[in-house]
Nucleic acid binder design. Structure first.
Lengths: 204, 204, 204, 204
DNA sequence: AATGAATGAGACTTCATTCAT
DNA sequence: CATGAATGAAGTCTCATTCAT
């Protein structure tokens, strides 16, 4: 029954999806929806929570826990893209719909996103340590810098996820998207750790 | 009068912002709003168009046209972050609110975004040519690959923009954000063009 | 099971008392309620009837049948006040709730009330006869006059019953209330029968 | 527009009168009702307040201020019966419908009733003083006793008002009803003040 | 030109009521 | 027999939208 909610909310938005529509889509009557989930608010919240949990679970399951940091990141990204591609409505619900409807809903998603950002942040830290252990000199990154990088990475992933989940055929596979993103991000991180970051003065 | 619309829509969302609110916020009467902008739909569209145009204009003005590709990208990003930080409501309208309402609204934003992605894509192409001209061997990137990179970059920028525009004091300045993103992205692009991209097999 | 109905209806009113509440209060399941009493209407009616019958029975039992008219009236009133004080929910049901819900319910109560008014009317008649038999000259009262007196007496009793049944400690006992009412009413009746009634012209 | 509310509420009760009905009865559309009176609750409250104020005003205007106490009471009662007879719906609203809905409604009516009871109480006190001034020995009545008498008198009046306001032709005129009630009540009060009240022991 | 006043359509929510077990 | 599960119908309230002034 939440399936119907997710689908309806993802496609029409919170307001435009009427409880009638959802009930009909679920093949039950409206009062039944109210019996199980007490209001539109709670229904929406339940949908968000379920999809957020499913996404986080999928990512967790995909991460190769004891691998090097980059491999962990890559596997996590692959899991992320695979999940969003398989559940485009869930992804739309989280990424697009939940953010527009007042703080109380957005909070749920923000919490989930923070969890992911935190995970990425720790991977970046782990990468720095690995590099140091390998004998390379590694600059210590400031907290803001790391947060920024993690946020940028997550944002890039979300952007690509919109693409892969778009349903239109042209998009890349989950592994391709993950590889593109690693290409995009990992080298820059390495350079940064070596103190060779890009700067406006040293252009070219 | 559009100002009121932008503000109300950005803060409350399309549905929750009532025409009464907007008229009051604008200091005029409701029928006047209807006289100039014929419906809530058109008002919203007009708001989106204005903000989209303003953002694109700001970016265009910021780009240092005849500089090397990376410098162009950096200046454009700086302009982008500066604008979104100065117009957080406009940014919220475009990035958060406009995407949820049925396609007719989303189209406007999608078009603007496509324009920006296209610009970034061409910069990446220009970078490849510069590198080739400089004598370095440069692998030719596939179209999908370039699109993916551009999309990732734009997504990352959007994610950082949410951060800088958040209003909370802690965020970085526009130039810092732009630099972070260049650090993040440009080295990876360079490696990629040299054929040294990251791949799952060659980890570490 | 009617107990639950009486309680719920008296406290929440007909509409606000839901069948769920009543079933739960009675400790049975809702369909069982429908098995015995076919609808909310019939349940309400049954409650009213039971309480009305109980009240009338209590009054009947209290009346000292062969005593003089005033003593009969007094004992009846005492029984009335005692019963309403002991069954405040029943009294509320009859006096407050049943009258607000459409004619069909009110009729039940009206019928009961008419019965009581009729009883009082006859007592007044009996008092007149007693007085005549005692040798006093007794004016014959018109029908309307008697009806009015009986109605006034019953109304006064109801008003006092609300007071004694109020649950708040300060109220008088049943016997006190009955005595107050007799004081209030009986002397006036006596004067009236002697043709010495109050009239606007003969003030003071 | 309140007229429609009063009528609908008086005839159908608070719950059974739908806002649609009221709007139609008032000859306007439903949203207009909500524009002026914000909710069904407030509409009901407004109706009650208006009718209560009208009733109190009518009684105040009818009382002959400087007359002896009995004359004052009689004129007030006449005004009361005249008003309720002329505004039967208002009377029903106050007396029947307003008492059932959760305390917030009832409070309004209780307050009005308390005001009237207080007025009657003072008249009884005034009568005692007049009698004393006239040289007659007058027993002092206890507070509870006076309250009970006043309450009984008001209850009797209400009961008669239901009769005169009933619409059915047979009822008495306002002045007749007032006279009946004075007959009923005043002599009893006089006896009581002389210490000759009725008591169960001194029957006959 | 500008507005106060008004409405049609539709959304969420609640119950009395009934089957299938 | 007794019930858990389900629904049809109805009610309150809101808001984009339009006349008459």
């Amino acid at each position: 029954m939440l399936d119907a909610g997710v689908r309806a909310f993802a496609r029409s938005g919170y307001q435009n999806a009427s409880m009638d529509d959802i009930a009909e889509l679920a093949g039950v009557s409206k009062p039944l929806v109210y019996l199980y989930l007490n209001s539109k608010d709670e229904l929406f919240t339940a949908c968000i929570r379920r999809e957020a949990a499913a996404l986080v679970t999928a990512i967790r399951a995909a991460v190769e826990r004891d691998a090097p940091a980059d491999r962990q990141l890559w596997s996590g990204l692959s899991g992320f893209f695979a999940h969003t591609a398989e559940h485009p409505d869930g992804w739309t619900l989280l990424h697009v719909q939940a953010r527009t409807q007042g703080r109380s809903f957005a909070r749920e998603v923000v919490a989930m996103r923070a969890e992911i950002v935190e995970f990425v942040t720790q991977l970046i830290g782990a990468a720095a340590r690995e590099r140091a252990r390998g004998g390379a000199r590694a600059r210590t990154l400031a907290g803001t810098e790391v947060s920024g990088l993690a946020l940028a990475l997550v944002g890039a992933a979300e952007s690509l996820a919109d693409w892969t989940a778009d349903g239109r055929a042209g998009g890349p596979s989950a592994k391709e998207a993950a590889a593109t993103l690693m290409n995009f991000a990992w080298a820059g991180l390495g350079n940064l750790l070596q103190g060779q970051g890009w700067s406006p003065e040293r252009v070219g």
